[in-house]
Each structure stands twice: as structure tokens, then as C-alpha cells.
Design a binder for these strands. Structure first.
Length: 133
DNA sequence: ACGCTGACTATTA
DNA sequence: CTAATAGCCAGCG
């Protein structure tokens, strides 16, 4: 799945209006959480896709880092639906309890084999495309 | 303040 | 094909 063209930084400004309060600290984090919450059940996406949606395709690491606090944020953020670009459950080690990520995915009908999402290309949910970016 | 680390990705060798 | 490299930027010692 081609990540297509480069996303202009203006995209982040678009989502910027979403933030209810005037806090800019959680700017990036909030955006990540927002997008992550939009992931339909039974679908998955990648850190890079979210990053691209925010206009910072190169900062996919930050997306993952943001997920680090996903469990602390309310409402819950389906961090288990976010995997790396090849559909591998790279973040399963950060889940509690260990291995819950795969379980959750399976529960949603997603087949996981050897820490990898089966038919990742079909289950892939592109926020850029779905959200109209 | 500085440097290292990391749930990533794309590019180059 | 695999391996190394470079961007990204928020935390933490």
C-alpha cells in the first residue's frame, strides 16, 4: 500500500481545530489519539499512516511514543489496532498484560500469526484516505 | 543543557 | 535479498 505523496504540514493544522481546549502540549498526542480512536473495529493501521495523517510522516516514532500513554488517556485508545507498516505487532511488549494485544485483535476477527496480522493489506485502514486527507 | 533511547519508515549501499 | 543510515522529536538521567 503506497503511502502516496507527501502530506503537506498543513494537514496537522486541519486536525488542530479538533482540539477543544487551547492546550498545545498534547497537540500531537491528542491528534494521535483522535485518529487512533477512529480506527474501525476489525481494522488496523500503521504508525506511519497516522503520522502521515498528521502531516509528519517522518515522525512515526512519536506516534508510537504517544501510544505509550494511550492507556492513560480516556476514553480508551485502541492501541492494539496500531501496528508497524508490515503489520507486525511490534508494540505487544508494551501491553499489559503481555500478549493482550494479540488477543484483542483476534477477538475482533483479525487473524494474527507469529506476531503478524494476516491479510494486513486488506484490513489496513488508511486514516489519510478515510478522513479525507 | 546535552546526549541517548525508542511501539517507525524510507532510502541507500 | 539483507544491512546500515538518516530523519523525526518527546522524555529522561
Amino acid at each position: 500500500m503506497p503511502l502516496k505523496k507527501q502530506i503537506p504540514p498543513s494537514a496537522s493544522e486541519k486536525l488542530n481545530h479538533v482540539k477543544p481546549s487551547g492546550k498545545k502540549d498534547e497537540n500531537f498526542f491528542s491528534l494521535v489519539y483522535e485518529v487512533a480512536r477512529q480506527i474501525p473495529k476489525g481494522r488496523v493501521t500503521s504508525y506511519g499512516a497516522i503520522a502521515a495523517c498528521l502531516g509528519t510522516r517522518l515522525s512515526a516514532r512519536m506516534v508510537g511514543w504517544a501510544m505509550n500513554g494511550a492507556g492513560n488517556v480516556r476514553p480508551k485508545v485502541p492501541a492494539h489496532r496500531v501496528v508497524n507498516r508490515i503489520g507486525m505487532l511490534s508494540g505487544k511488549h508494551h501491553f499489559s498484560p503481555r500478549g493482550s494485544m494479540e488477543k484483542l485483535l483476534r477477538k475482533e476477527g483479525i487473524r494474527v500469526k507469529n506476531d503478524q496480522v494476516v491479510d494486513f493489506d486488506k484490513l489496513f485502514w488508511d486514516p489519510v484516505k478515510e478522513l479525507g486527507f
